[in-house]
């Protein structure tokens, strides 16, 4: 085996995986707190890619040429707007259904997913959209034809997702807000009795998920340069798979699941067969769940009588 190919595939896998991980956070947090699979999350990620391109174009229009400031501003605006999306979707489509059957919000989410996809398609057109390449350059290890390379954007993806993870872990683990989140996750009724504003916390979780999706959206768009209204679907399913693989409801699990899924896909595709890459990922998922029914890092379910 050529080591440089293996190395390259691992880098490919890690980048892909950290994107899955970032999106998986949205699934896992929402699931953890209200036990609902938020099918519209993939499309929130898709919307964030559009918002990013639009913001970038507006910033460019106002003549800010420094790539660094433009990116920083774009990131901030995209995160804010996408967060708003998360908030409004929860407010409009899920909150009225709280306390009803478990599957009602699921169907509502599917409706929102269709709505977002088609709304963006109608208003922005069905064409593939893109942004110019902002960050170029790679770091190469090795010489001649046999090298392992990592693009600056890929470095940025890895660093940013690690930073997001760290920030989020601190937010959930170390702050008062995080404590409230965990309280609501464990027992919503009890938390409400103890004075936690559960509605606000649930909204917050949706916002956090959407913001993470926005980070992913910005990074992915920087890396691949193009997107269309359909990207949310495939990526959404993959990220969701990642969330389950890691143990749905667990934050580090989402990241771990994402990385593992990315690596598996990349290595299988690179060394075995691209056609059956997704079959393999799903087979691994099924296998893991059969032997460890609550995912890799998920808390085992306690059967209460």
């Amino acid at each position: 085996m050529d080591w440089h190919i293996l190395g390259q595939q691992i880098i490919n896998g890690l980048t892909l995986g950290s994107i899955y991980g970032l999106i998986a956070i949205g699934y896992t947090m929402v699931y953890g707190i209200i036990g609902m699979i938020n099918f519209a999350h993939g499309d929130v990620y898709m919307v964030s890619a559009y918002l990013m391109a639009i913001t970038l174009a507006v910033i460019h229009f106002f003549g800010i040429d420094s790539v660094f400031f433009a990116l920083l501003l774009t990131l901030a605006v995209t995160m804010a707007l996408t967060g708003l999306y998360g908030w409004s979707i929860e407010r409009v489509a899920y909150r009225p259904l709280r306390g009803s059957t478990r599957l009602a919000p699921l169907i509502s989410a599917i409706g929102i997913s269709l709505l977002l996809q088609n709304y963006v398609q109608i208003s922005q057109g069905a064409r593939v959209q893109g942004i110019p390449t902002l960050i170029e350059g790679t770091i190469r290890f090795g010489s001649g034809e046999d090298f392992v390379q990592i693009k600056y954007v890929q470095v940025l993806i890895l660093v940013a997702s690690l930073a997001c993870m760290a920030g989020l872990s601190w937010l959930i683990g170390g702050t008062n807000l995080g404590r409230q989140c965990r309280a609501v996750q464990q027992d919503r009724k009890m938390a409400a009795i103890l004075g936690v504003n559960t509605d606000r916390i649930i909204s917050l979780v949706f916002v956090i998920g959407a913001v993470m999706a926005a980070v992913a959206g910005v990074l992915v768009t920087l890396n691949y340069g193009s997107f269309d209204f359909y990207v949310g679907f495939v990526t959404g399913i993959k990220a969701f798979t990642a969330a389950v693989l890691g143990g749905i409801g667990s934050l580090p699990g989402a990241m771990l699941g994402g990385l593992i899924l990315g690596l598996l896909e990349s290595l299988f595709s690179g060394f075995v067969n691209t056609d059956y890459k997704d079959v393999f990922s799903f087979a691994v998922l099924v296998g893991v769940l059969i032997f460890k029914p609550s995912g890799l890092l998920g808390r085992p379910e306690v059967e209460k009588v």
């Binding site: 699931y31 036990g35 699979i37 749905i248 997704d278 079959v279």
Partner: peptide, 25 residues
């Protein structure tokens, strides 16, 4: 048979996985 000892939503994902596997094959 293999998936029925799973609960609720995990079952959902495994069945999702099976559905996709069949389609991909």
């Amino acid at each position: 048979f293999p998936v029925l000892r799973m609960h609720g939503d995990y079952l959902a994902i495994v069945t999702l996985g099976f559905g996709e596997i069949i389609r991909l094959i």
